[in-house]
């Protein structure tokens, strides 16, 4: 087992349709990079924390953002939303994943 594997955490990805995948994410590696490397498709856009396409909900565990979280406001961060494109797990984690989470954070104006 390599050093990276030893430092890796298990990240469980849960989709709204019930699908669940667990990937290993190395220390300092982003969830999106690890998912891509494993061939697990998750949403993303800018890859630097500005666009929010990858927005996910942290259900369990601890996660650390490696860059400023520009796409999420304070209240979204407080509610447990994270950006997998710039986030690395500090512990084993469970994340709710899906393209619709970005819109759920803001809702629909005027509605």
């Amino acid at each position: 087992m390599s050093a990276t594997d030893e430092a890796a955490h298990a990240v469980e990805l849960r989709w709204p349709d019930g699908r669940v995948e667990t990937i290993r994410v190395g220390s300092g590696e982003t969830v999106v990079d690890a998912a891509e490397a494993t061939g697990v498709a998750i949403p993303y856009g800018c890859l630097y924390g500005a666009c929010g396409t990858c927005t996910a909900e942290l259900l369990d565990g601890e996660i650390r953002h490696l860059k400023p979280v520009r796409a999420l406001k304070e209240r979204a961060l407080d509610a447990g939303y994270v950006l997998p494109c710039i986030a690395t797990p500090e512990t084993d984690c469970r994340l709710r994943i899906g393209h619709e989470i970005q819109a759920e954070v803001l809702g629909t104006p005027w509605k």
Partner: peptide, 12 residues
Amino acid sequence: APNTYYPGFDLE
């Protein structure tokens, strides 16, 4: 700014 309109439209 991209980091304003990218994540979606927020009346705030």
